[in-house]
Design a protein around this nucleic acid. Structure first.
Length: 879
RNA sequence: GGGCGAUUGGCUCAGCGGGAGAGCGCCUCGUUCACACCGAGGAGGUCACUGGUUCGAUCCCAGUAUCGCCCACCA
């Protein structure tokens, strides 16, 4: 119980000296390590796994701050708490990083070969990956490092293989020839969510198919397209069945320009007669719609682009890139007089690879898919029937929109880094899916593709706990308690965890099969003008830079304070500075307390011995505790911070500490002793309440104040001692003091200038026992011999007479009184109008009427008082 | 093209049927013995617009305008 000498506390908090050592001690003490065999209720959150290639950005900082606050509070509440850390192998991203590294050596992955390349990626991970884990320590994340996971770990690979096999056997995974999103740079298939759509400037070009010249009227048709180069692969022209303009052509063939081929004109409902010319060129191999049309009409599929997006069709365009081919084809068509109208600019959605921004090429190829319909149905039902609650609930609509209309998920990737598809092919094309402990038949070869990264991410809540084995961790911590993440990946990730979690745990009780019970969604971090952060804008914030300059606690507090459920968080350096100031304020409040001998009482404080200010602040404290508890349950981090900020700064520092100065300086050991205990108690509990959001400074101060080991494992406050009498009394003191301060300020009295004053009528008022405090707060001296009041004001039922001879500015005082009078009259008028309304009195609730009546009375007495004072001034002696 | 949300003081945001709030910024005063990363006081808003419901609307409903986000295979 040795306490540092309080005098040693400097007058400013220096986060950089505190944070590193504190975190080390926490980690060494094992405070963050969960116990699978604990009898305490479990509380588990899995981290949204950052990419192994990633660095801690401000979005992580927000996410981690919120998770850590939840977890730290539960830990203090005695839960068996697990925050499970880990990383995602990030297939394409990581492969790209290592390939770039190889490129510097003049090598490609093909030079190394698959095995050596994968080896190289592991080596890269060991040397340069996972930087973000160290950065998490700087933020103070209270994760259980003994349970760190990586999506390519052996255990997680087993989980992947197991669920793949199960899905395969259940017919929920299939292989098919489809149009998929293809990145011609990454040379792999992409799922829909790996494609970003943007409205790009394109050209809508009208091309005449069929005869030109004299035959034109009879057998030609004009199609509109944004991708003229794909015409080389056209195998039909489609029109709407009811489109009278073209009925005569349906069933006939037209000549496809530049190729000499004749292609049929077909009728299909998909065609919108009002768009363009009402006729569509059909390229089944290079357009998803055309693919479907081709299927319906049994059209041939002509592939004319290779995996790099280069034209393969024989002829003059062969070997041209798709973007070179476009103008070349148009030029050739123009030469033949096939371009009917001038091309016109056209804005349309174009897909880009989310990894490298290359324009995605729809491509027909053989890929693996997850049949999502039954899985998505279950994922939707879990939310519909309340087994999983989304927070805020407004997100339900978005969630349902997604799961209720989900395309089958393309899960194969033509990459080398990732979980290889556990399917083997026999010499005669036989197929077999191999489970984790099974061997493929000799001589069979494995599918070369790997799985989409999100496939393994979708297993995260249970693969990290040991599934498919029935482990103690899985039993203790599944379903996880809350999933905290940005709403931007609600669909990417959350919906998929739901699908796979419910599927993997289908044997469990429905209520316990869910991967998490609650999904708490937060927003994106934006700059001080609400703009998205981006490197090109130059408005990004590096959280570690803030940690360096303002401290981890200030960084966390800034983020948490801006976090309203589901809404974006706007932050700026000024806010971070404000949070740093708050840390410093706490620091100095505790410093003051220690300098004055404050300490945490061994026994509960008895209300009988406490002073009214003590009782008041304890009453306020209990209100704050219950508010904070309630707000934590609702993930209202912004409000939690707001309440604690104002309680700490306004009530504890600005009022309570000032009020405490009187008893502390009184020299009465009894009185001072009680205050020291109350002060110690309040600060102790305040620090505990703040600890989840501001772990470092609270730890430093709390250990200094209590002499105990760590607030990390201290109990969460559950103190309840409301005291309406004390609250009313101190409110009255506060109003009086504020009123007199305003008066003094208006008079131009310096804040520190002492003046003599008499409090008339204080005897018999509840304020009587606070006279000394009031005088202390207002720098009022007792009236001496020859005291002559030169100014007075009335407030809270007493009159304050001041001897301010010579210091008063009569004109300023009159202006203020007149202004106040006007305000009071307007207030009275408003209240009176409301009361006069007969219907109002009849229909409004009694309490509202009573309240309004009180308003009117208060305003009335204000008016009387102000009028009297004005009259006194006018008639009275000028000073 | 669908869906969702926003519009409150200079900025970012709370509030959401009965007296307009916070932080930062701004103005005035202050070297009062925890803190100038401070203290005291103050200015500043017809709560986007138009209608409706109600005794009463910033709050509920409808429409308008502007902005934002998500989803989407109209060539």
């Amino acid at each position: 119980m040795s306490r540092p000498d309080p005098i040693e506390l400097p007058s400013q908090y220096a986060p950089s000296e505190v944070e590193g050592p504190r975190y080390e001690r926490w980690e060494k003490a094992g405070y963050f390590v969960a116990d699978a065999y604990s009898a305490a209720p479990a509380y588990c959150i899995v981290i949204p796994p950052p990419n192994v290639t990633g660095f801690l950005h401000i979005g992580h900082a927000l996410n981690h701050t919120l998770i850590d606050a939840l977890v730290r509070r539960r830990r203090m509440q005695g839960y068996n708490t697990l925050w499970l850390p880990g990383m995602d192998h990030a297939g394409i991203a990581t492969q790209n990083v290592v390939e770039r590294e190889l490129a510097k050596e003049g090598l490609s992955r093909h030079d190394l070969g698959r095995e050596a390349f994968v080896e190289r990626v592991w080596q890269w991970k060991a040397e340069s990956g996972g930087k973000i884990l160290g950065q998490m320590r700087r933020l103070g994340d209270s994760v259980d490092w003994s349970r760190e996971r990586f999506t390519m770990d052996e255990g997680l690979s087993r989980a992947v293989q197991t669920i793949f096999k199960q899905l395969f056997d259940d017919g929920l995974i299939y292989r098919a020839e489809r149009i998929i999103n293809w990145c011609p740079r990454c040379l792999t298939a992409l799922s829909d969510i790996e494609v970003d759509h943007s409205d790009d400037e394109g050209e809508l070009i009208s091309i005449r198919y069929g005869g030109v010249g004299e035959d034109q009227a009879n057998d030609s048709i004009v199609v509109a397209t944004t991708r003229p180069e794909t015409m080389l692969g056209d195998t039909a022209v489609a029109v709407h069945p009811d489109d009278a303009r073209y009925t005569r052509l349906v069933g006939k063939t037209v000549e496809l320009p530049l190729t000499g081929r004749r292609i049929p004109v077909i009728a299909d409902d998909h065609v919108d007669p009002s768009f363009g010319t009402g006729a569509v060129k059909v390229t089944p191999a290079h357009d998803p719609n055309d693919f479907e049309i081709g299927r319906r009409h049994d059209l041939p599929s002509l592939t004319i682009l290779d995996e790099h997006g280069v034209i393969t069709a024989h002829g003059p365009f062969q070997g041209l890139d798709r973007f070179e081919a476009r103008p070349a084809v148009v030029a050739a068509l123009r030469e033949q007089g096939r371009i009917v109208s001038e091309v016109r600019p056209y804005l349309h959605a174009v897909g880009h690879c989310s990894r490298c921004s290359t324009t995605v090429e729809p491509r027909q190829s053989l890929q693996w898919f997850v049949r999502v319909a039954p899985l998505a149905k279950a994922a939707g039902d879990a939310v519909r029937d309340g087994r999983v609650r989304l927070h805020p609930p407004e997100m339900n609509a978005r969630y349902f929109a997604w799961v209720d209309d989900m395309h089958d998920w393309c899960i194969s990737r033509q990459l080398w880094w990732g979980h290889r598809i556990p399917v083997f092919y026999g010499p005669d094309g036989e197929v077999c899916c191999v489970g984790p402990d099974e061997q493929p038949p000799a001589g069979w070869h494995q599918d070369p593709d790997v799985l989409d990264t999100w496939f393994s991410s979708a297993l995260w809540p249970f693969s990290t706990l040991g599934w498919p084995d029935d482990t103690p961790d899985l039993r203790a911590f599944y379903p996880t308690s809350v999933l905290v993440t940005g709403y931007d990946i609600l669909f990417f990730w959350v919906a998929r965890m739901m699908m796979f979690g419910l599927y993997a745990m289908r044997g469990a009780e429905p209520a316990d099969a869910v991967p998490f019970r609650v999904v708490a969604l937060h927003g994106l971090v934006r700059d001080q003008f609400g703009k998205k952060m981006s490197k090109s804008r130059g408005n990004t914030v590096d959280p570690l830079d803030w940690v360096d300059r303002f401290g981890a606690d200030a960084t966390r507090f800034t983020l948490a304070r801006g976090a309203n459920p589901g809404a974006d968080v706007a932050i700026s350096e000024e806010w971070a500075a404000g949070s740093r100031n708050f840390c410093n304020k706490l620091w100095n409040a505790v410093r003051f307390a220690l300098l004055n001998g404050a300490h945490v009482p061994a026994a509960p404080l008895s209300a009988d011995t406490l002073s009214v200010p003590d009782r008041w602040i304890l009453s306020r404290l209990s209100a704050v505790i219950s508010d904070v508890d309630e707000l934590f349950e609702a993930f209202e981090f912004g409000k939690i911070c707001d309440i604690l900020y104002h309680f700490a700064w306004d009530e504890v520092c600005d009022w309570y500490l000032e009020l405490a100065k009187v008893p502390l300086a009184s020299g009465d050991p009894q009185v001072a002793g009680t205050t020291r205990q109350a002060l110690g108690f309040v600060l102790d509990r305040l620090l505990r309440l703040l600890h989840p959001v501001m772990p470092f400074v609270t730890e430093e101060l709390w250990t200094a104040l209590t002499g105990e080991e760590s607030v990390t494992v201290a109990s969460w406050p559950a103190f309840r001692q409301p005291d309406p009498v004390a609250e009313a009394e101190i409110s009255s003191v506060m109003r009086l003091v504020t009123e007199v301060r305003r008066f003094r300020s208006d008079q131009g009295l310096r804040p520190g200038q002492r003046v003599a004053a008499r409090l008339v009528g204080v005897e018999g008022s509840p304020l009587a026992r606070h006279e000394q405090s009031i005088r202390s707060l207002l720098r009022l001296d007792p009236p001496a011999d020859g005291f002559a009041a030169s100014a007075s004001l009335a407030a809270e039922g007493i009159a304050v007479e001041l001897d301010v001879a010579g210091a008063i500015d009569v004109a300023a005082e009159r202006r203020r009184l007149e202004k106040d009078l006007a305000a009071a009259r307007s207030e009275a008028e408003q209240a009176a109008r409301k009361l006069d309304n007969a219907e109002f009195t009849a229909k409004a609730p009694a309490e509202v009427v009573a309240k309004t009546r009180r308003r009117l009375e208060a305003a009335g007495s204000d008016i009387t008082r102000l009028e009297q004072r004005l009259a006194a001034m006018q008639g009275g002696p000028s000073t």
